[in-house]
């Protein structure tokens, strides 16, 4: 299995506080990975670095077959290169319909002029319908997304991610605030997605992580504490110390 994303020796500090400390991380092309860790472990900052929101003080972030560095690219360029990100809070365009939200996310030329002269084709409409099917929002296509429930918004956002056809999906706490049924649905969507691409899930909820049934990376104080199956890491003494407190 070849490597899709390689993060090596990355550090970043805010006003003297080391949020990420010499972190190294790798993920393959069709892999599901869960990242867990206590608050302040650097999970969100890690995502910020990969997506270009935060520039690290040192280290390398190498992407894809051509091994390009992500550090010199803007957020939009990274997104176009194939990294999709879902935020902790569901962020969808609430004033626009579900259909428009998905259409906006479809993998297409993103330049202003092509977008200005864009006319939707039957093919694109079919794609949107297929996506809506996948995330279970077919009935809601014409509603404004602001009217959706919290869980529906989360799915819509995942749907928008899938519409981008990214090679790497970064998902921040997808199950927060969901009912058990909704969680199950979310798990199914993510597992399905991981068959064709890399998916990194940041999650607090151990039960949800267990259900994903994948390799787990534990972050602590900005670096990797342990890596392996969930059972493996939860039996690790360091991890137990960190979670239970010494």
């Amino acid at each position: 299995m070849s490597t899709l994303l390689e993060v090596s020796g990355v550090s970043v500090s805010f006003d003297g506080f080391k949020a990420i400390n010499n972190l190294s991380f790798q993920i393959g092309k069709a892999e599901m990975r869960a990242i867990i860790g206590p608050n302040g472990a650097g999970k969100t900052t890690f995502m910020d670095i990969v997506t270009g929101k935060t520039r690290p003080d040192e280290g390398r972030v190498i992407w894809g077959d051509k091994s390009v560095s992500l550090l010199k690219m803007s957020e939009a360029q990274i997104a176009r290169a194939g990294v999709g990100r879902k935020f902790q809070r569901p962020t969808v365009f609430e004033d626009q319909t579900v259909f428009d939200n998905l259409l906006l996310a479809l993998k297409k030329d993103r330049g202003p002029l092509p977008v200005l002269f864009y006319r939707r084709s039957a093919e694109d409409v079919d794609k949107v319908h297929a996506l809506a099917e996948e995330i279970g929002l077919t009935d809601q296509l014409d509603r404004k997304s602001g009217e959706l429930s919290h869980g529906q918004k989360q799915w819509l956002e995942i749907g928008m991610l899938l519409a981008q056809e990214p090679q790497l999906l970064l998902v921040d706490e997808p199950a927060a605030g969901m009912t058990p049924e909704e969680r199950e649905h979310t798990t199914a969507i993510l597992v399905e997605a991981a068959k064709t691409r890399a998916v990194v899930v940041v999650e607090h909820d151990m039960e949800f992580v267990r259900r994903l049934n994948c390799k787990v990376t534990v972050l602590h104080e900005g670096s990797v504490l342990a890596e392996g199956s969930l059972d493996h890491v939860t039996s690790n003494k360091d991890v137990i110390d960190v979670y239970l407190g010494r």
Partner: peptide, 21 residues
């Protein structure tokens, strides 16, 4: 059109539009 959709997206959540590419 879609351009308007992007514009309103920028108005409502600039960062999200950026992460859409």
């Amino acid at each position: 059109g879609k351009f308007g959709s992007v514009l309103r997206g920028i108005r409502d959540d600039e960062a999200r539009v950026r992460f859409l590419g």
